[in-house]
């Protein structure tokens, strides 16, 4: 499935809904959304990952980039991620830097 990332902002919460495979080829599109989201100076970034089937190390780098971009004060939520994506995040220890949830609880 082709990668897609759509951004919606409501109040202080920026939500990016991810679809498909987040690999090196898709990472620039994801980063563009992160930049856009950061522009709104949200207090929280929520990544809806239910339909994200895969994330490579380049995709993970985008998440690390998001954390840098948003600053430590902005919490990043990764919601409803599939097992392979969770595995990639856990393996590298990045799960300690984000909030992983099965369903979004604000």
């Amino acid at each position: 499935m082709p990668f897609d990332a759509t951004l919606s902002t409501e109040g202080q919460v920026a939500t990016i809904t991810l679809t498909g495979e987040l690999d090196a080829a898709a990472a620039p599109a994801f980063r563009a959304r992160i930049e856009e989201a950061a522009g709104a100076s949200p207090e929280r970034l929520v990544l809806m990952a239910e339909r994200l089937s895969y994330m490579s190390s380049a995709g993970l780098r985008s998440l690390v980039f998001a954390k840098q971009k948003m600053g430590q004060a902005v919490d990043i939520y990764i919601v409803a991620a599939q097992d392979p994506v969770i595995e990639t995040i856990r393996l590298t220890g990045f799960d300690h830097s984000v909030i992983m949830q099965e369903a979004y609880v604000g």
Binding site: V64, L91, T92, G93, F94, H96, S97
Partner: peptide
């Protein structure tokens, strides 16, 4: 298995 996070990430 991992004994620490990825190098240079955090």
């Amino acid at each position: 298995p991992p004994t620490g996070p990825a190098v240079g990430m955090l």
